[in-house]
Amino acid sequence: MVTFASVSRPLLRDALLYLVAALVLGAAANLVPGRQLAWWGKGLQPPTVGVDFQWIDAFAADALRAALPDTVFVDTRGEEQYRDSRVPGALRLSYTELGNDLTAEVETRLRGAGAVIVYGASQETDVEQLLAQELHRRGLSPPHVLVSGFEAWQASGLEVEGEAP
């Protein structure tokens, strides 16, 4: 049972010490370039269609690829799924590993692309929208997000490549 004695003044003082130390270290770390976050939720609005990304369906994406050969597809699925089967020429970028995956070379390629189309596995596109938002935040034109992901691409009978297409 939590009694007054168990929450005594020295304990509160020690607990406060931990809190202050965490605040100081957290604030200092958040000043380090490259890992900074806005202090108060700025830029944390959910990705917005028409602002951060645009929807595109599988056939329109294929048409865009034909019209603009430098279109880049970005695959957000796991490594194994990507290896097995993917849109021809697609890059793999993990949103949560973007710091490692988005090398200068990849970023240059994305910036030079006629269009960027981000796709995931299926109709759940939360991660793809976030990735598109992040790419837009880094200065790219709002990328396209493929409706229903690679599932729709395959179901439409469009070209794929990989070890087990």
């Binding site: 965490a22 605040l23 939720g41 700025k42």
Partner: peptide
């Protein structure tokens, strides 16, 4: 959480976890 404090949690909570773990 509303959008405002989300970043604050991400900035400070991991440090509190680390310090508490070390403690």
């Amino acid at each position: 959480l509303p959008p405002g404090p989300v970043n604050l949690v991400a900035i400070f909570l991991p440090w509190l976890e680390l310090l508490v773990g070390i403690g």
